[in-house]
């Protein structure tokens, strides 16, 4: 028989002290790194809000940019342009994204094809946005020989699809199978079950997922650089260059003029607020559980 371990021995005590020392050290390091990350990031946010808020005024939302050297002016045309491009992108990207998500959740369960689609969507999600810009440029701008809002919309739509697909799938998977069975058992055709039962039950989550995708591409600059291209005036035409908020922020940020810097900060704040609202909404739905009360 082994002699009983002497837990009071010097070596045991040292070992114990060492182990607990390491434990505390690592705990401290983890807390420190969290602080190292959180503090500067909060600082970024606060700085943005401070600089942006002091730049916003009524003119910002109602005027087009003033010529160089003059003060005043706003980014109204850029916001309108962003709106137009985003509506275009959403009208293409959201239906396709939701439909692909429906396929994955309702038709593709256990199928190899669905796995491949899922994987491709995740990979597509990681492709740099500038590549989407070049692709849309090569397809549309090079053919039409001029920049256009439409080309920008296509680039952004491609970026929206994989995100929306995966969110839709995820949200549909939270709908209990028993509810689908209830509808099918009543003799409701499958398409109707998917639309009126599955999608309807998951709709809060899917809508917020779409908002998130929308907010994400709303801040994208790279795909618009050589598609929407930007301009300094009001423009409503889809086949002409159009201003967009993130593009304008970029142009103003690298310009040498203080007045334009001011506008850039204001634009950044507007973008951030939009994103904050959508992320918060998603958070609320995710935290609350999309299906409160569902069995």
């Amino acid at each position: 028989m082994r002699p009983p371990t002497n837990y009071k021995s010097r070596s045991m005590r040292l070992n114990s002290a060492w182990r607990y020392g390491i434990n505390h050290l690592v705990t401290g390091l983890a807390i420190l790194s969290t602080a190292l990350v959180i503090v500067p990031l909060v600082a970024i946010l606060v700085y943005l809000i401070y600089k942006g808020a002091s730049s916003l005024n009524l003119d910002f939302f109602t005027h087009i940019p003033a010529p160089v050297g003059e003060t005043g002016g706003g980014m109204a045309n850029a916001m309108l342009g962003s709106g137009i491009v985003l509506v275009l992108a959403s009208s293409m990207g959201i239906p396709v994204g939701i439909a692909a998500g429906v396929y994955l959740a309702e038709y593709g369960q256990g199928k190899l094809l669905a796995m491949a689609v899922r994987f491709t969507a995740d990979v597509l999600n990681g492709i740099p946005s500038i590549v989407m810009g070049i692709a849309a440029y090569s397809l549309i701008v090079m053919r039409q020989m001029h920049f256009s809002a439409f080309a920008g919309g296509v680039a952004l739509a491609i970026m929206m699809v994989p995100t929306i697909t995966r969110t839709t799938e995820e949200m549909l998977m939270t709908v209990p199978h028993s509810i689908r069975e209830a509808a099918l058992g009543l003799g409701v055709p499958k398409w109707r079950t998917v639309l009126s039962v599955s999608l309807r039950t998951a709709s809060p989550g899917i809508i917020t997922g779409c908002m998130l995708a929308f907010a994400r591409v709303a801040g994208e600059t790279a795909p618009l650089l050589f598609t929407a291209f930007g301009n300094q005036f009001w423009s409503f035409k889809l086949n002409e260059p159009i201003a967009a908020l993130p593009l304008q922020i970029y142009v103003y940020a690298i310009s040498p003029y203080d007045e334009w810097h001011r506008l850039a900060w204001g634009g950044a704040l507007v973008l951030i607020l939009m994103i904050m609202v959508s992320v918060t909404l998603v958070r609320i739905y995710a935290g609350r559980g999309v299906l409160k009360g569902a069995s």
């Binding site: 969290t34 990350v37 959180i38 990031l41 909060v42 970024i44 946010l45 700085y47 943005l48 998130l212 907010a215 994400r216 709303a218 801040g219 994208e220 600059t221 790279a222 993130p246 922020i249 970029y250 940020a253 850039a264 900060w265 950044a268 973008l271 951030i272 994103i275 904050m276 992320v279 918060t280 958070r283």
Partner: peptide, 19 residues
Amino acid sequence: ISFLTELLAAIPSVVYGLW
């Protein structure tokens, strides 16, 4: 904290650039 990290992941590149 998770909310904050999610928010920061959603801030557009151009805004980080501006900062």
